[in-house]
Design a protein around this nucleic acid. Structure first.
Lengths: 294, 294
DNA sequence: CTTACCATATAACCACCTCTTATATCCATT
DNA sequence: AATGGATATAAGAGGTGGTTATATGGTAAG
């Protein structure tokens, strides 16, 4: 096998030009350089590739045959390079993200819609799950970025917050009189509470916060999705712990109302996580730019 | 376009191994060299091709796509190199020779037969004509070598003699009594002579020789082929000037007999000519070796 | 939890190789 | 015969690709 593939590029150009000096011009090199390169190639192949004539060179049968293959090969490589360029253009490729269910519906959906309109040929792959599960997917390489509730503390990850959210408690008509005035956390804990499952990041956050205030909750209901929690509040099953930003429709229309608390639950953020050790794909980079620009 | 094609060979090996150090072993290089090469390629393409992991590297989507093309390209080049090797093996290619008619039948035919048996997949192209015409074909590149009667004086040609031949005069039964004793050149000239056409090299040679002895011939018959000349002698149309080596069948069987001359016509040679300026193809080289080995 | 090993990254250095300049040579054409 | 255009050859310089040495990081085993 010929050691220097670069010689083949020169061979290719010379073959097309049937001239060393012509090829030299095209390659921005000098004629002796071409001459030496071809001589080296001929030496390595132990085959005369060109017949030298006073007015240039002509391919031998061997050279002619070889040129067919080499030309195709170089074209293939150029096509490969073009494909790479398309990756960078975001005209091909895929975006693989992991995202919590609630976030996906209320926060990410519009972003994804805009992204898809902008880059319609990109494939989208979206995984749902808890924050922990998503981080696992991220680390195992099944998704490129994860959008989830913060805080996420993991030294292997880049974490960028992209939206603030607020935990709050809401109720339906039935509790309107009862909750007309502000209440403290201890009072709150005695009401029939509707929460997400204990494994959810949001639930943990609020529960931990209340614990830090010396308040232990024991919810009447532990539900699998934020939507369900909201609906349970609407049908007056109790006081629901929800994300204000994802419940705005109900709050604005007056179907649900917020509990006035004596004391505030600190805001949290939604953030986007990626692996420090793995550079982002072009598609992921672009999408991440969209998210954090907000 | 990436400037260094060599980087792609390294990329290819790394892609197969999914390891820099593994590829380094396969390429008999060190790991840092691989590392630098891939980094250079990634820089030129502005694209990450591999994800670095603690236990090696893995292809990114971009790298994976590129590898398909590059791998095919390198395979193509290798196939091309194999084809070249086949040329050298004489398993493909062609032998193009020019040869005088007489020579082709009596001298070259057995050689060609042997050559074809030895290298059956080579294509043969055989041109006939006078020496002058053949030399023209040689110079215009339509044939690789020419086998013809010497002398050929041309500074652009390599000429190698490969067989001695002798011009002689022969006759049939009718002239047996008349030519029972040696005769001189002048006597010969008075007999009814059968010659090749004046343009033929053999005819010119003998005619010139006789002229140098002060003898001018005027043949009764001027024929187009050596075979015809021989046949005319056999049917007793006259005394034929022939090449002894190509008439041996008739002489040995007694159908024809040689004129005893007082004085000898110097022997000539058959030679093989090739262009000095154009290196011989593998097939021609081999065939020429066969010819001059005799 | 710490250590050891195996992977890649980085830095510095050196030798070789490739390209350049300069010149020769050959052939064809005027 | 001379000129122009093509390739070949020679020699020199610079850059590049490779080396060694070392750092860094992560996993697995003790």
């Amino acid at each position: 096998m010929v050691s220097k593939l670069d010689l083949y590029r020169i061979f290719c150009i010379v073959g097309k030009n049937e001239s060393f000096s012509g090829a030299a011009k095209e390659l921005f090199m000098t004629q002796p350089a071409i001459s030496q390169s071809i001589m080296q190639l001929e030496k390595e192949l132990e085959t005369r590739l060109f017949n030298r004539t006073p007015k240039g060179v002509t391919l031998t049968n061997e050279g002619s045959l070889l040129l067919e293959y080499v030309n195709s090969a170089i074209n293939l490589i150029e096509i490969g390079e073009e494909k790479i360029a398309e990756f960078k253009n975001l005209t091909i490729g895929e975006l693989r993200i992991g995202v919590g269910d609630t976030i996906s519906k209320y926060f990410l959906l519009p972003q994804l819609e805009a992204f898809r309109n902008r880059y319609p040929s990109l494939k989208l792959k979206i995984e749902n799950g808890t924050t922990d599960a998503l981080i696992s997917l991220l680390k195992s390489g099944e998704v490129d970025i994860v959008v989830c509730n913060l805080p996420v503390v993991d030294d292997a990850l880049n974490v960028r917050p992209c939206m603030d959210i607020h935990d709050t408690f809401v109720y339906g008509d039935k509790y309107r009189k009862l909750l007309a005035r502000p209440i403290g956390f201890h009072e709150l804990a005695k009401l029939p509470l509707i929460f997400l499952e204990p494994s959810s990041n949001s639930r943990k956050y609020v529960e931990d916060f209340l614990l830090s205030k010396g308040v232990k909750i024991s919810p009447e209901f532990e539900l699998g999705s934020h939507d369900l929690v909201v609906e349970f509040a609407r049908i007056n099953m109790g006081i629901a712990c929800v994300t204000r930003e994802f419940t705005e429709d109900y709050l604005e229309s007056g179907v649900l109302q917020e509990v006035q608390l004596k004391g505030e639950i600190p805001r949290r953020s939604i953030g986007v996580c990626s692996l420090k050790s793995v550079p982002l794909s072009p598609a992921s980079t672009r999408f991440l730019e969209l998210l954090v620009r907000e």
